[in-house]
């Protein structure tokens, strides 16, 4: 395969660091390999630098399949283990409906309407988010 192909298909999703927060913006179709690469990149970056939160903006994603849904849930779970919180921001209505119809309600995942709200959410102390400000649901 050409170099361009490997860069766009299997390439990295950029991970931006804003203070204590990592910002990931997903655009268009995300291939499975790229999603897994992102999962790995994120855990390494969090372990290396002491960030407290990850914001994944998926407002540019038209379609989420069960694989990407699971990857999102796994990213959230593994960042939790590394003492950081993940917020998925900007999910489109159609995507939300699709996920629910697939039975993927992603109970452990924090969500926010926009990236801005997600930043505010992460700025709140951990305690308040645990005690009901956020929805902690058992799967």
């Amino acid at each position: 395969m050409s170099e361009e192909f490997s860069r766009t298909v299997a390439g990295h999703v950029p991970v931006l660091r804003l203070g204590d927060i990592l910002l990931v913006t997903l655009q268009g179709d995300l291939y499975d390999s790229a999603a897994q690469q992102l999962q790995q990149d994120l855990s390494e970056t969090i372990a290396r630098s002491r960030v407290t939160g990850v914001v994944i903006d998926i407002s540019g994603v038209e379609m989420v399949d069960s694989f990407l849904g699971r990857v999102l849930a796994e990213i959230a779970a593994q960042t939790e283990l590394l003492a950081a919180r993940t917020v998925v921001a900007g999910m489109r209505p159609a995507v939300a409906i699709t996920l629910v119809e697939l039975g993927l309600t992603l109970p452990g995942l924090r969500t926010a309407l926009t990236t801005e709200v997600a930043m505010e959410l992460l700025a709140q102390p951990v305690v308040s988010s645990r005690s009901g400000g956020l929805r902690q649901e058992s799967p």
Binding site: G90, M91, L113
Partner: peptide
Amino acid sequence: MKTVAAARLMGAE
């Protein structure tokens, strides 16, 4: 429940 779950995925309670 479905509606509630979908709204939650979008970041609304």
